[in-house]
Design a protein around this nucleic acid. Structure first.
Length: 256
DNA sequence: ATGGTAGGATTCCTA
């Protein structure tokens, strides 16, 4: 099975990139973030033509997540286990061929003194609670998406500049570690210790050309998936296309 | 230290 995650920064602006990439990479499952459309405007037909079934949740202008799958989607759930009316569209889960797949878009956080930062930490705490309430560490789980956190110094272009800043602060690291201590590991780090391999580059200042990026998009996997992993990669090619998303898709292959 | 770019809504917000 091949599972990918991609923050597309508007599914309407990126529809051609998405269909081109699906044809080329041919994943079984794709977790999308930042679709930026209300549910009525989600272009499900564009994906069903390519053989993908979809589950999605969106809102006007911001956020929005989805799961695309070549196989049947079962037990679709939207949001956290302790859902609130004011929650934005940042989490969707479904079971595909026995694998519990979650597509997550973690709040950006803005700055450490922003209310958004506290919301980011709380959102991650609720994600851990959702895992506790809906999953077991022994089962096959893939938690994919844009976490807006670079995990260590290998995952940022300039550790000294970034340390203590948003995306690379101690409390963010602790909150993400608490999620992973459920029983998930970073699939990418099962294959390489190399640094300066990124999944996001700012649109500004020629950041992609200069490889000034962050690795903030992940596919976290439970033990049974980790033991079955064959590859874990970041496909930077779509970031070189005209009018790209600022994120590149991440992809794993495993034998389950 | 600042500001640069992109998407989507609407002269601003989020990233």
């Amino acid at each position: 099975m091949r599972i990918a995650a991609w923050n597309v920064n508007s599914i309407r602006a990126r529809l051609d990139h998405l269909t081109d990439w699906l044809r080329a990479a041919n994943p079984d499952v794709l977790c999308l973030q930042e679709t930026k459309v209300i549910d009525d405007d989600f272009p499900a037909n564009s994906f069903s033509r390519l053989g993908y079934e979809c589950a999605w949740t969106g809102e006007k202008t911001y956020n929005g997540v989805a799961i695309l799958s070549r196989h049947a989607l079962h037990d679709v759930t939207i949001g956290h286990a302790d859902a609130r009316a004011e929650d934005s569209a940042r989490l969707i889960a479904a079971t595909v061929q026995g694998v519990r797949v979650l597509s997550a878009y973690i709040p950006n956080g803005k700055t450490l003194d922003s209310p958004s930062y506290a919301e980011k930490l709380e959102w991650l705490a609720r994600l851990r609670k959702t895992l506790d309430a809906t999953c077991k560490p022994e089962q096959a789980i893939v938690l994919g998406g844009d976490f807006n956190i670079a995990r260590d110094e290998r995952d940022v272009f300039d550790p000294e500049q970034m340390r203590g800043k948003i995306h690379f602060s101690e409390r963010e690291h602790q909150a993400l570690d608490e999620v992973l201590s459920f029983g998930l590991t970073d699939s990418f780090r099962a294959f390489t210790e190399e640094g300066q391999l990124f999944s996001w580059w700012d649109y500004r200042m020629g950041a992609f050309r200069r490889n000034r990026g962050l690795r903030i998009d992940y596919l976290f996997v439970s033990k049974v998936v980790k033991e079955a992993l064959r590859t874990a990669t970041i496909d930077i090619e779509p970031r070189t296309w005209p009018k790209p998303s600022d994120h590149a898709p991440v992809l794993i292959e495993f034998d389950l």
